[in-house]
């Protein structure tokens, strides 16, 4: 299935693109997608997605379509879903 990926904030800057599409196997969970994106990404993006051990960064904000997904939740995906990944910001 095909998924739309959207990067926001520092992730968008580090990735150099706001959006990309990826093709993945049907069974994947959103956490697997983050892992897959991390494996393809540059160092800066990877470090915002996963830690040195490959575990998802606890501060990463993930939305599937218009809903947030907690890192502990499993979230099945469907073809055409949009996954938004955001690194929290604090500028005042």
């Amino acid at each position: 299935m095909q998924l739309k990926i959207r990067y926001e904030t520092l992730l968008k800057r580090a990735a150099g693109v706001a959006r990309q599409s990826i093709d993945v196997a049907e069974t994947q969970d959103v956490r697997d997608i983050v892992g897959e994106l991390a494996s393809q990404a540059n160092n800066k993006v990877r470090s915002m997605l996963v830690d040195a051990a490959g575990n998802m960064q606890p501060s990463l904000l993930i939305f599937v379509n218009d809903c947030q997904v907690n890192a502990s939740d499993s979230c099945p995906l469907s073809d055409g879903d949009e996954i938004t990944l955001m690194s929290p910001i604090s500028g005042g």
């Binding site: 520092l10 470090s47 947030q68 690194s87 929290p88």
Partner: peptide, 16 residues
């Protein structure tokens, strides 16, 4: 709930 720990990527100075 949203940001359980400080994101390592955040820096004190930022474009604004």
């Amino acid at each position: 709930c949203l940001t359980p720990e400080k994101p390592a990527a955040w820096t004190r100075e930022f474009p604004v």
